[in-house]
Design a protein around this nucleic acid. Structure first.
Lengths: 120, 120
DNA sequence: GAATGAATTTAGAATGATTCTAATTTTTGA
DNA sequence: TCAAAAATTAGAATCATTCTAAATTCATTC
């Protein structure tokens, strides 16, 4: 765990929002001005493989990085674009039961209009 | 509905597999040799918007096109890469109930080892 | 059947996120 | 202190997809 890797991990962990590599790069530059995009990608990739953060793919967008590594789902607001974590307790087991196969991972992205946007 | 658009729709409908734009392009050339990649993308995009086919995004792969437009899920084999349709009856309603929000769409990709690969 | 305008198709350039490469810098530990 | 290993870097490469602007096809009207 190098200094820059630790910095990137901190940045992902600091906020509950799901940042893109670009956003993380800009934040990282404030604390480590010479850092390069390659280092950001290298380390975010490594951290994801090590299971310390989680890479989130959302159709048509740059990948995002999530501090929450436990299995969970995502809700994406059609209006404001906000990405919110959802936790469906026991979902993996339910999937396994319904499928009858061993599951290594899954990805569930739900879209709709969030409560805040529905009000306005 | 132009001839080429109809051809592309046919190609997607012909086989149960989920083809990429590239694969569809190669098949289309057999029946319409001068067809261009741009036409393939234009028409597959249009057909998807019209709801006649469905565009499927799988992390790290080129998009695929699915003849099945009803809401359903996908199982991707970690070993052979096969993409299989899953039908979880009432899943949209279950999601809506658990979330308490109106859902416009969702995407569920499940990964694991398919039965065929487990045997070998 | 020719003329007109709209829609489709086309080749190739542009895009943009990500990965790769090869060189440089930093770190480690003998 | 030195050598080897690891991390970092700039920039090139990749690749699916979209965009652009020109060419072609199509439908409609006279």
């Amino acid at each position: 765990m190098t200094k820059k890797k630790a910095l990137l991990l901190d940045l992902v962990r600091e906020k509950p929002v799901h940042l893109t590599a670009e956003q993380i790069f800009l934040l990282a530059k404030e604390r480590s001005p010479g850092i390069s995009m390659a280092t950001v990608y290298n380390n975010l990739g490594a951290l994801s493989h090590e299971g310390l953060i989680r890479r989130v793919h959302i159709d048509g967008q740059a990948d995002r990085y999530d501090r929450t590594v436990e299995p969970h789902e995502h809700f994406i607001c059609d209006e404001c674009g906000e990405i919110r974590d959802i936790f469906f307790h026991g979902f993996t087991e339910e999937l396994a039961k319904r499928l009858g196969e061993r599951i290594s991972s899954y990805e569930l992205n739900v879209r709709g209009v969030c409560a805040a946007c529905q009000r306005s």
